[in-house]
Amino acid sequence: MSLAPFVQIVGRGPGRSRSLTMGEAASAMDLMLTPEAAPEAFGALLMLLRMKGETAEEIAGFAQAAQAALPSMPGADLDWPSYAAGRTRGAPWFLLSARIVADAGHRVLLHGWNGTDQKVRDALSQAGIRTARTPDEASAILDSDSIAYLPLENFHPALFSLLRLRDVLGLRSCINTVCRMLNPAAAASSVQGVFHPSYRLLQADAASLLGWQNLTVIKGGGGEFERHPAKDIAAFGLRNGALWEGTFNASVGVTRRLAEHGAAYDLNDPTDFDESVIVGTAAAALETLGWRNATKTAHRLWRARTPRKAA
């Protein structure tokens, strides 16, 4: 089977085209993940979807098929994708937030790819987070450290190739969103950051179609799951499988951008404002996991932290 029928569904023109159903999207993704698929066809499909605007059913179908192609691995408690391009991101303080969640007793799997920007991967060792070369190694690291980072190219090379089409097409596609909707370790809870606010509800609706339980999506620093402590942050997602909306209230009165750091930064030397970013982000993740005193717990764990050697 070719991708032509799916291209025709979306691209027939005004009055004749329509969105893909969830099942059709899953079938299309199955084809796109095979080496036999014509790159011209899935390039055409992805750009038609971009022009039309992706639906929750399309994102859910793509994500379902991409997830099904993954090897199985022991579970995690929290899935934490990191796929922002990094152009507007400062220091990746959210890595220390993820470390706090692991210190609270949860297994946290970070996964991602950030284009040519190396801020996240360069800072992993500063946060005490080891990088896994394979899903099996990620499982072993989770067993020993409760937190691991798994690069997309190491656990889903076929989807990574689709993501890299941005270099050819010159535009992002819905694959960026699909990557955020992956859940390699089948965690019951997930946190996601977006750069464009409209994607918050799209990803929440897609997660509902996929039968997820707990999810928090925010417009975060540089597109990552990272809270600005001086702003009220609108959040969308799921709680116990039901659609949910909430607000994380500002915790400080300082007005500044998250990306005011220069090229050099040290995760071991945060300012008071940076600490508010770290604690607030950790609290949002803990709340997603069901903690009632999430902010208090995040503050306690941050104060009790010990210096960590480079991983």
Rank of each mutant, 00 (worst) to 15 (best):
D205G: 12
D205F: 10
A207N: 08
A207W: 07
S208G: 14
L209K: 10
L210W: 03
G211W: 13
G211S: 13
Q213R: 15
N214E: 05
N214C: 07
L215Y: 09
T216F: 02
T216V: 06
T216P: 02
V217I: 12
I218D: 02
K219C: 02
K219M: 05
G220A: 00
G220K: 00
G221M: 04
G221F: 01
G221N: 05
G221E: 01
G222M: 02
G222F: 04
G223V: 03
G223C: 02
G223F: 00
E224K: 00
F225W: 03
F225N: 04
E226K: 00
E226P: 01
R227Y: 11
R227V: 11
R227G: 07
H228D: 06
H228Y: 05
H228N: 10
A230K: 08
A230D: 12
A230I: 09
A230S: 15
K231R: 14
K231G: 02
D232L: 11
D232R: 11
I233W: 08
A235V: 09
F236R: 12
F236G: 05
F236M: 09
G237V: 01
N240A: 14
N240Q: 14
N240P: 03
G241T: 06
G241E: 07
G241Q: 07
A242R: 15
L243Q: 11
